[in-house]
Design a protein around this nucleic acid. Sequence first.
DNA 1: CAAAACCGCTTGCGATTTGCAAGCAGTTGT
DNA 2: ACAACTGCTTGCAAATCGCAAGCGGTTTTG
Lengths: 168, 168
Amino acid sequence: MRETGRSGCPINLTLEILGDRWSLIVLRDIMFGNRRHFRELLTKSDEGIASNILADRLKRLVERGLLARTDDASHKQKGIYSLTEMGIALVPVFAAMGSWGRRFLPVTEEMSIRAELLEQGGAPLWEGFMQELRALHLGAPAPEVSVLAGLTAAYREAVARREAANAA
Amino acid sequence: MRETGRSGCPINLTLEILGDRWSLIVLRDIMFGNRRHFRELLTKSDEGIASNILADRLKRLVERGLLARTDDASHKQKGIYSLTEMGIALVPVFAAMGSWGRRFLPVTEEMSIRAELLEQGGAPLWEGFMQELRALHLGAPAPEVSVLAGLTAAYREAVARREAANAA
DNA sequence: CAAAACCGCTTGCGATTTGCAAGCAGTTGT
DNA sequence: ACAACTGCTTGCAAATCGCAAGCGGTTTTG
């Protein structure tokens, strides 16, 4: 029945896939930062992931079904990493973790503005975001309003505000 | 500003505390299994945590503020581990992870019945559960209905059903 | 009241994982 | 032609994990 797992508990099985320091970071960057290539994920990571670990996590996430890798037609070496429905369905998990982190941990304002919007928007916003991710990653029809654009704009505004304040 | 952390992102900071294979398992057993002593957590763990890892995780979770440790008046060696508000506030995270795991991973019925009820009940049920946890762990006044009793009863029924089916 | 069971937790140790730096073969832009 | 860039690998030291055994002390049992 169970191959190598520890138990059939949903929390445990989720941890066996996502319970490490990097997997959710990679998924976060793909989901919220729309980073689709290896180098993008490697160099634009705020946390500075190492290349061997990134390679390993991408491979694992593809094997486990959260990501899909396709070739980039415009560049023979590039691969494109896309979220699957399984990956897209993590939006509520990110929202819950973001809310919790924002409340209890020393987050910076610019890094938590998206979590704040996700929390305020609630389930309807998450659903819109997931629809948009299906458009971006799975070729589904695009929704009318872009949640991601709103999140990204708010983030950039927060960065600009901080830089203006630092310059003053 | 930031001492040893990697970034001020709420997701990252959450992962720096909970991003391993065991921390959430321990919290889950305390929260849903009402296990309050070291030995209870050690021997009743479905996943079979090792004693040194359990000791380390308990220490870390106390240091980070998710658990509190008090002496057991009835037994000079026993400590009692209690959830803090920070730990109790993880209920929505567990609910989101449980829903996701239940949908995409090979969970067993008896181990996922609680996740199913938590999903069906939604935010109002989570709030009731958190109130109950505040009563159990923080000495707050107990709510009228016990969510935990409902979850536990459903779990036991599922176990009994499986055992009856196996015996047949 | 002595033996047995139980208490939280530690120690030793081999296996695995992590994190860092360097590098590689192939592709692309200049 | 050449430099820059592509995804990804390798070597290696350090940290962590997972298992088994055990420790001093407390409580229960016969």
